[in-house]
């Protein structure tokens, strides 16, 4: 069964239709790369999945259960949405780390706040905090920042910040981790270290959706590629198909610019 099913997602801002009837599904452990020109709706799609935008139409199912249905107001209430967001993690283009917290505190903050809602929080407070702390340290070590845990974001490079942001998203154990152009704010040297972390996650079969302009990376890592332009999916398929034998003229046109580089 698919871990994620997206059906007929439609979203408009005022009168501009940004997403038109988006349909796709994703299997557990797969990596979906979303490519396409800027302004095509890629970021809006990710934001819809993370409920930063509310789709006007459509259904989102995770593990078979309906997370969002535009026709069912019960799935749209604020308090429900907060819990549902936790199925997804989101790594932003501009990192959005909390500047007043160290790398470790950035990773620890959300799990600590969520732990307070657990019924056994007061009984097992010390153990819960110990577990969160250990998990956060483990994640930072995993992304190669064991020695920078107590640094503040302004003391870290862009690549290091983005890696902390990835650890912060992973700390909540999302079903699906989303990346919104994770390397677009980085220079080529720093891009490599972030892509390596994402690649390592793919090797461990982390389910991911990656919006990216790194075509070579998308081709290597993705199990499925969506090409989105003008708010609709123009082409989708395995990376070899989409990159080597695109069926649509628009895809060919878009990819030819990268081939020239």
């Amino acid at each position: 069964m698919a871990i994620l099913e997206v059906e007929h997602i439609q979203k408009s801002f005022d009168r501009t239709e940004v997403l038109k009837d988006i349909n796709f599904s994703l299997e557990q452990g797969q990596v979906l790369a979303i490519i396409g020109p800027s302004g095509g709706g890629k970021t809006t799609l990710l934001r819809c999945l993370n409920f930063l935008e509310t789709p006007d139409q459509g259904v989102i199912r995770v593990n078979g259960s309906v997370l969002f249905d535009a026709d069912d107001p019960a799935t749209r209430s604020e308090s429900q949405i907060r819990r549902k967001r936790l199925h997804f993690g989101l790594v932003f283009q501009s990192f959005n780390l909390f500047p007043q917290y160290t790398a470790l505190e950035n990773v620890r903050l959300a799990p600590e706040l969520l732990a307070k809602e657990r019924p056994d929080y007061h009984a097992n407070k010390a153990a819960i905090h110990e577990e969160i702390e250990a998990n956060a340290r483990g994640l930072l070590a995993q992304i190669g920042l064991a020695d920078r845990m107590n640094s503040y974001p302004h003391q870290l490079s862009g690549g290091q910040c983005q890696r902390v942001a990835i650890a912060r998203a992973l700390a909540l154990h999302p079903d699906i981790l989303c990346f919104d152009e994770p390397t677009s704010a980085l220079d080529p040297e720093l891009t490599g270290e972030v892509l390596r972390v994402i690649r390592a996650l793919a090797d461990k079969r982390t389910t991911m959706i990656i919006v990216t302009h790194e075509m070579a990376f998308a081709r290597d890592v993705a199990s499925q590629v969506l090409f989105i332009d003008g708010g609709r999916i123009c082409e989708q398929g395995a990376p070899q198909e989409v990159f080597q034998n695109p069926r649509e003229e628009r895809t060919r046109q878009f990819l030819s610019r990268f081939a020239q580089e």
Binding site: N50, L52, R82, R85, G89, N96, L97, F98, A110, L172
Partner: peptide, 8 residues
């Protein structure tokens, strides 16, 4: 937005 997607 970072806070929201972290379930805060």
């Amino acid at each position: 937005e970072a806070g929201l997607v972290l379930g805060m």
